[in-house]
């Protein structure tokens, strides 16, 4: 009998694929956001509005993870941007190798984008653990889901750089305490940004668009600075 001490990450294979993706997104100057929320919180609706607003200024593309149907990717294509569905066949999250494979199969259609929008499988738990090579995770929480969710599902709210509170047009009809949610998120993740939006009415959406455009500009500046710092 032999005993071997190792200390290998269970998700090492995913981490390695994610590193490769991150390097390739850096080379192409593509901002990548990974949207995570429960089903029905409005990820696709937010992205449809984003596509319609930003497609004239930026080259956008989408990857949509779901158990079944290509409905979400079709909705993004209908909103005017290239998008591919990734069917997980029952798995509760996207992993980096699925992103690699989907981008390889799409080829030029999803190459050299300004912003790649990844819509994860609707689930507040499992997708949190899988690095997809993104610049940051975005958690969505709709006001109809209840204002206790950040403390009930802490991992995603602790790791998402941005939380978008969606369906703000329904606030008058539900008991959803915005301040309570903001203070829970601040306790879990002091540097997180919190946006309150309604993709349906457009309320608050300018801040979301500005966040994407500023993040893209910051990434490109950082890449240019890093390239200039490398001795010839």
């Amino acid at each position: 009998m032999t005993e071997v001490n190792v200390r290998e990450k269970v998700l090492a294979a995913n981490a390695s694929a994610a590193r490769g993706l991150r390097a390739s997104f850096r080379d192409s100057g593509t901002l990548v956001v990974n949207l995570i929320s429960s089903p029905g919180s409005g990820k696709t609706t937010l992205l449809e509005a984003t596509a319609r607003e930003l497609r004239t200024r930026l080259r956008l593309g989408g990857l949509d993870g779901d158990i079944a149907t290509d409905r979400d990717a079709q909705r993004l294509r209908d909103a005017g941007i290239p998008a591919r569905q990734i069917l997980t066949g029952g798995a509760c999250h996207l992993d980096a190798r699925q992103i690699e494979a989907a981008l390889a199969e799409e080829g030029e259609r999803l190459a050299g984008l300004d912003v790649l929008l990844i819509e994860n499988v609707g689930n507040l738990i499992c997708p949190t653990s899988y690095d997809l090579g993104e610049d940051f995770k975005v958690a969505l929480l709709s006001v109809t889901e209840g204002d206790d969710k950040p403390f009930k599902y802490p991992a995603i709210f602790a790791r998402a750089a941005v939380t978008v509170l969606t369906k703000a047009d329904l606030l008058p009809h539900v008991d959803f305490d915005l301040d309570a949610v903001a203070s829970q998120i601040a306790a879990l993740n002091p540097s997180a940004r919190v946006l309150v939006v309604s993709a349906r009415t457009g309320e608050g959406m300018d801040a979301w668009y500005a966040l994407l455009e500023e993040s893209l500009a910051e990434k490109r500046t950082a890449v240019a600075v890093a390239a200039a710092a490398v001795p010839a």
């Binding site: 071997v4 290998e8 990450k9 269970v10 653990s129």
Partner: peptide, 11 residues
């Protein structure tokens, strides 16, 4: 952490 720490196997 989500790491494999130790593996024990036979001949």
């Amino acid at each position: 952490a989500l790491d494999v720490l130790r593996v024990v196997f036979g001949d």
